[in-house]
Deep mutational scan, measured.
Amino acid sequence: MSIQHFRVALIPFFAAFCLPVFAHPETLVKVKDAEDQLGARVGYIELDLNSGKILESFRPEERFPMMSTFKVLLCGAVLSRVDAGQEQLGRRIHYSQNDLVEYSPVTEKHLTDGMTVRELCSAAITMSDNTAANLLLTTIGGPKELTAFLHNMGDHVTRLDRWEPELNEAIPNDERDTTMPAAMATTLRKLLTGELLTLASRQQLIDWMEADKVAGPLLRSALPAGWFIADKSGAGERGSRGIIAALGPDGKPSRIVVIYTTGSQATMDERNRQIAEIGASLIKHW
């Protein structure tokens, strides 16, 4: 067993022997301040990774656009098919120029040779490549099948209805392509620590998230040296922004954090800054 596999296998073990965790309302004060600064709703939840206990939450059962955070769930569904012998990570998928959609920095470079399922998941999570996500959605049967996968996990809230990039439209009061912070946090925890996926697939999923290259201005910008984070960000229309993450000190994750916002007129930089400040408060009061 590799060191990384050992780390993920012992996530519940280490967490069980940690000192009790206590909620700190100071972080919620910052979440509410972010709402004021952005002029928009902000949803927040913080779960203990081992027990699933909610440590703090704000608007945990209000719907927010998922945006690209759905790509972690998508690759979880792909990995479940791999575990069941219905898919192979090494299978190569070929596609054409007509398949390319807006923001496809990886797939646009491989029109000639195609990409493997493993490479597509890596591109979808680490670079948020939209064509990679659409190609992977095709392998599982489309958005409705991802929703069905989530329902089978016990998540009857999260739903995907459309493809990239239309799913980022974020129309107010439109339930399409949305989740709730509580539902997303619980589902992410199941994917990373539950028995739904094999140990190898859980490790692969967290490795992809740990290698995320496009979430630097968010929670990662607030992390002290030595902290662990595996995350996936999302951005959408109407001032929408979000991030889902597993993080913790001492090089291992111990909490799940989900943050979503929508309806702001603020710039992307300002949305990023507010999420980073929430992260800084979380870490300060850990």
Rank of each mutant, 00 (worst) to 15 (best):
S51C: 06
M115G: 01
R92W: 09
I275L: 11
G263L: 07
M180D: 10
P105Q: 06
S68T: 01
K53F: 11
W286E: 03
T178H: 01
R255A: 04
G76S: 12
G194Q: 12
R91Y: 05
Q203G: 10
A246C: 14
R118K: 13
Y103Q: 05
D113L: 10
A266Y: 12
L218T: 03
V106K: 07
L100A: 05
L89V: 07
D231R: 03
F149S: 07
P165H: 06
S104H: 05
G263Q: 08
V117D: 00
R63P: 08
T147H: 07
I244S: 04
N98L: 15
W208F: 07
E26R: 09
G251E: 14
D177Q: 01
A246M: 13
L192N: 01
L205F: 06
S80D: 11
A124T: 13
F149M: 12
T193M: 15
E210W: 11
D174Q: 05
D269A: 13
S221E: 10
P60M: 15
T193R: 15
L150N: 05
H151I: 14
D231L: 04
G154N: 10
M184Q: 03
P224F: 03
K71C: 00
S201N: 10
T261P: 06
P65H: 04
E26V: 11
V257E: 03
C75P: 01
D33K: 12
T147N: 11
T131Y: 05
L218M: 09
S51M: 07
G263R: 07
V42N: 01
I244C: 09
R92S: 09
R202P: 03
Q203H: 09
I243N: 01
D250S: 14
Q37H: 13
W163Q: 09
V101P: 02
G251R: 13
T139Y: 07
L160C: 10
T267M: 10
G141H: 06
L89Q: 06
R81W: 06
L49Q: 05
W208D: 05
H94Q: 11
A215G: 08
W208A: 04
P224K: 08
W286D: 02
R118A: 14
C121K: 00
Q86S: 15
I259M: 09
I229H: 00
S96C: 09
A182G: 15
S254V: 12
E56Q: 10
G141N: 08
A215V: 05
R92L: 13
G90Q: 15
K190M: 15
I206T: 11
L73N: 04
Q265K: 15
W163H: 09
L74P: 01
Q274L: 14
G39N: 12
L167A: 08
V72Y: 03
G142F: 03
I278N: 03
L196Q: 13
G52S: 06
R189T: 10
H24T: 12
D48M: 05
G194W: 08
E145R: 12
G236C: 02
M127S: 09
P249H: 08
L282W: 01
M268F: 11
L199Y: 11
A211M: 15
P65Q: 03
N50P: 13
V31E: 01
A170K: 05
P65W: 00
S57N: 09
P60C: 07
L247Y: 03
P105A: 05
K284D: 12
S254L: 11
L282T: 09
D83M: 04
T187W: 05
R118P: 05
A148I: 15
T139N: 12
A170Q: 07
M180K: 11
S51I: 07
I206C: 10
I93P: 02
Q97F: 14
G226K: 10
E46P: 03
L191V: 10
A77K: 11
L218H: 03
S201W: 03
T261H: 07
A170P: 09
M268L: 12
V258K: 04
A245F: 04
K232E: 03
L150H: 05
A230K: 02
H156P: 11
A124K: 01
T116F: 05
H151C: 10
I283W: 07
E195I: 08
L282P: 03
S57G: 11
E108R: 13
K232C: 01
Q265R: 13
V157D: 10
K252M: 13
Q86M: 15
E35S: 04
N130Y: 02
P143Q: 07
P172C: 11
G236D: 04
I54D: 06
L282A: 11
M127F: 10
L188W: 04
A40T: 09
E166I: 10
M209S: 00
R92T: 14
P165S: 07
G242W: 00
V106R: 07
W163K: 09
S254Y: 09
H285D: 07
T131S: 14
D250L: 12
A280Y: 13
T186Q: 15
M184N: 01
Y44T: 01
D269E: 12
R271D: 07
L136S: 01
G263P: 05
L191M: 14
R271V: 10
E119N: 09
M209P: 00
L196R: 14
A245C: 12
T69D: 00
I171M: 15
P65M: 04
R202M: 08
A84F: 10
P217N: 10
Q274F: 10
T187F: 06
S104D: 02
L47H: 02
V31D: 00
G76P: 00
I229Y: 02
A133D: 05
G239C: 03
G236L: 03
E62L: 06
